[in-house]
Design a binder for these strands. Sequence first.
DNA 1: ATGGTTGGGGTCCAA
Length: 262
Amino acid sequence: MRIATWNINSLRARTGILAQLVRERAPDVICLQETKVEDDLFPHGLFDELGYAHRVINGIRNYHGVALVSRLPFSDCGRRDWCDKVDGRHVHATVEGVDIHSVYVPAGGDIPDPLENEKFAHKLAFMSAKTAWWAAQRDDGVPRILLGDLNVAPLETDVWSHKQLMNVVSHTPIEIEHLLAWQQAGGWIDAVRHLVPDDRKIYSWWSYRAKDWRAADRGRRLDHAWVTSALTPALGGCEIMKDARDWTRPSDHVPVLIDLKL
DNA sequence: ATGGTTGGGGTCCAA
């Protein structure tokens, strides 16, 4: 089973390159973040045409929004809200016995101080809530995979410059502490780093604001796939589709793909 | 230190 995760930065603005992902990689399951479309306006027809008949969506007007679409049927699915907000950040479905989650962590604003910046406080609270929720499910033996835009680049090799980004939201010590606490509490294994050595720089996001994103290569690895230990032996491969950053009207994030040998 | 770009919905906010 091939699973893709992609912060698509508006589903309706990217129908062409969504079809391109399907043509080029044919994922069985696609987890999307930043769909920017409320549920009543969700483009169901597009996914019917592409062959993704099974869908669970959690979208709001204007911002955020997540979806999980599949060619294979669900045996269960649902959506969850966090931190007393209805802001479209989590959907899940069980496919081929695997519990799959599409998650969008709050970006956190510009100032990395929870006292000065409410958005940063929300980001930390969101990760703490996830930590507690998954700690309760740790060691239940369920094959589980969590994918999405987690908006944190934890390793030094997940950013173009560790020194220059240490005080920049997405790579601050407090965010990394929260992310790793969440990962450890749930018994999660970073699937991409399980397959790619830690000393190799890998990014999934490049800002729109660079004149030449490829030449500057000031990227960050914000998009992740984590698995529980029951799934580690099934990890067959991964790909970060860097070339997608040059597709027509690209998202600033590229798809991350995981292959599971079930 | 600053400003750079994108999308959505409506002339500003979130990323």
